[in-house]
């Protein structure tokens, strides 16, 4: 489980690449560095890259909803990118699509390693 963050001042987008398993045990360790970056940068958009996430349960849903609330409070938005099929199913079950966009960057071609969406 790890997270890497990248901020693009031009687009005011913060990219957070999550990887490994997201469960109750690991969620706090992912939340803290992301929230620290959000409070420091005040981005307009938070992009959570889920392509490296190998497992996720409802703790991951809690993590996404929590970041959605934080970004909404700050007047921003959140986008999720490239979840694996089994994680997509969980996102659908949880109704995450009502809160934010879930983008497949390989298909849409809108994401080129930077943070432009």
């Amino acid at each position: 489980m790890s997270v890497r963050t990248f901020y693009d001042p031009k687009t005011r987008a913060l990219l957070a690449e999550l990887s490994g398993d997201i469960d109750h045990c690991t969620a706090a360790g992912l939340r803290e560095p992301v929230d620290k970056e959000i409070m420091q940068r005040l981005p307009q958009k938070l992009i959570l890259d889920l392509s490296g996430v190998s497992f996720m349960d409802s703790s991951g849903i809690g993590l996404i909803i929590g970041r959605y609330k934080l970004m909404t409070d700050l007047g921003g938005s959140i986008v999720l990118t490239d979840p694996r099929p089994e994680i997509s199913k969980l996102l659908t079950l949880a109704g995450i699509g009502r809160l934010c966009r879930v983008v497949d960057t390989h298909k849409s071609g809108s994401f080129t390693g930077g943070v432009k969406i």
């Binding site: 939340r31 349960d57 409802s58 703790s59 909803i65 929590g66 969980l90 079950l93 949880a94």
Partner: peptide, 14 residues
């Protein structure tokens, strides 16, 4: 307060 989504049983059921 602990960011529990309240979906545990719903997920087990599904």
């Amino acid at each position: 307060d602990e960011e529990r989504a309240g979906l545990g049983f719903a997920i087990m059921e599904s």
